[in-house]
Amino acid sequence: MTQHPDDNEILQLFHQGASFAERAFNLIAKKYGKQLYWQIRRITKNHEQTNDILQNVFVKVWLNLSGFNATSSLYTWMYRIARNETMTFLEKEKRNSSVDVDDSVVEIIAGHAALDTHTADEISELLMKAIDQLPEKQAQVFQLKYFEDLKYSEISQQLGTSEGALKASYFHAVQKIQEFIINALNH
C-alpha cells in the first residue's frame, strides 16, 4: 500500500501557500480521493454523477481548507462534505431525471435463507440504507473496514480514534446493519 504523508504535514504544507498549497491539495486528493470517490459512488451507483459530486467536494475542500480548524480529522471533515454534497446533488437529480445505475455494491454469498430470494441490487440498496441510518463514526468505520479493507491501525490514524474504540464501533455497526436488513426483508 502506498505510504501517504501525515495529515499534519499536508496541512503545514498547505499553509505555506502558493505552489505548496497546490502540492498539499494534490496529496490530499491522492490520499483520500479513492475513499471519497467510492463513498459517493456507492450511493449514486453511477460514475458520471460521482465525478460531478467529487469535483464539487474538492472545490469546497480547496476553497475552505485554510479555515479547517482540526476539531475533527481531515478525513471526517471531507467525509461530511462528500455526504452533504451527495445528498444535495441527488435531491436535485430526483427532480430532473432518472439515471441508469450501473452496479450493486455487494454480492450475495449463498447460505443465508433470508438472502437467497433477493437480488444483489436489492440487498445493496438495503445495505446502503442501513449504513445511512448509522451514527457518523460507525458509518465511517464500517465503510473503511468493510469496503476499503483498511486495517484498524490505518483507520485509527485516519480518524484519530483508538483501535479499541474502532473495533467496538464496527461491531455495533454490523449488529445494526443486520437488524435493519432482517427487519426490511421480513416486511
Binding site: K30, D103, Y146, D149, Q175
Partner: peptide, 19 residues
Amino acid sequence: NIVEFLKPREREVIEDSYF
C-alpha cells in the same frame, strides 16, 4: 451475522491520474 454473507463487489481501478 448477515453481513458475513455479503461480499463487497470487485470494483474498477481508479487511477491516480484521475484525481
